[in-house]
């Protein structure tokens, strides 16, 4: 068996334990591309199942390291100390899934987030996501939005989507997770939705 991805979260992303949030983000993007469905570099080296497992290890590592609280706890549990790392000082969020999320500020990233050409509908979002080799589960794990809702977004099942105030947040999270520009992506999708409902 090929050793898919072993080691701690930092080794999985190929970064130093002192990496800045920007470096975490860039390393994550690199690994996502490398282990994505469309990856050329990994072709014939890993089978599809191994590739999926590698991707979920990358996702898991990123989930922890992008969150200052979780990263702090993880570092403490692994015995990593980061001299000069700011201690998270904000009040900790309540444990357990948060039903409605306020979208966090967009993480800094190397590649500028992309903007889709109109029409920005479910199919366009899905095509972009699949090109990036990101699964709905990956997005759900990152955003805590249920896979069901992500499927409704991609299938344009407008009647089943939540109220616009929530939907906007969902779309922005979706965009962040796939590398799209959040505000413009959400706006483009929602204005198309508005036009469709006006026509009815």
């Amino acid at each position: 068996m090929v050793a898919v991805l072993v080691g701690n979260h930092y080794e999985v992303l190929g970064i130093d334990a002192r990496a800045t949030p920007e470096q975490v983000e860039r390393a994550y993007r690199f690994c996502l591309e490398m282990y994505g469905d469309a990856s050329v570099a990994i072709y014939s080296l890993l089978d599809p199942d191994e590739q999926r497992r590698a991707r979920s290890r990358v996702q898991e590592a990123y989930e922890v390291l992008r969150d200052p609280f979780r990263r702090h706890d993880y570092d403490a549990s692994q015995g990593f100390t980061r001299p000069g790392a700011p201690m998270p000082s904000l009040p900790r969020p309540a444990a357990g899934p948060v039903p409605v999320r306020v979208p966090p500020p967009p993480p800094p990233r190397l590649a500028a987030p992309q903007v889709l050409e109109p029409p920005v509908d479910g199919a366009a979002l899905r095509r972009f996501r699949e090109q990036r080799g990101i699964s709905l589960k990956d997005i759900a794990a990152r955003s805590k939005i249920g896979v069901r809702y992500l499927e409704y977004i991609e299938a344009d099942r407008h009647a089943l989507l939540p109220a616009p105030v929530y939907l906007r947040g969902f779309l922005q999270e979706y965009a962040r997770a796939t590398g799209l520009e959040p505000q413009r992506t959400a706006e483009a999708y929602m204005s198309r939705l508005r036009r469709a409902s006006e026509r009815q």
Binding site: V2, E33, M34, V40, A41, I42
Partner: peptide, 18 residues
């Protein structure tokens, strides 16, 4: 640019998986 990145991915993949 993504083709350029493939070289880095190959090096990373060789180290990790080979």
């Amino acid at each position: 640019p993504s083709d350029v990145s493939i070289g880095h991915q190959l090096v990373t993949a060789c180290a990790r998986h080979l």
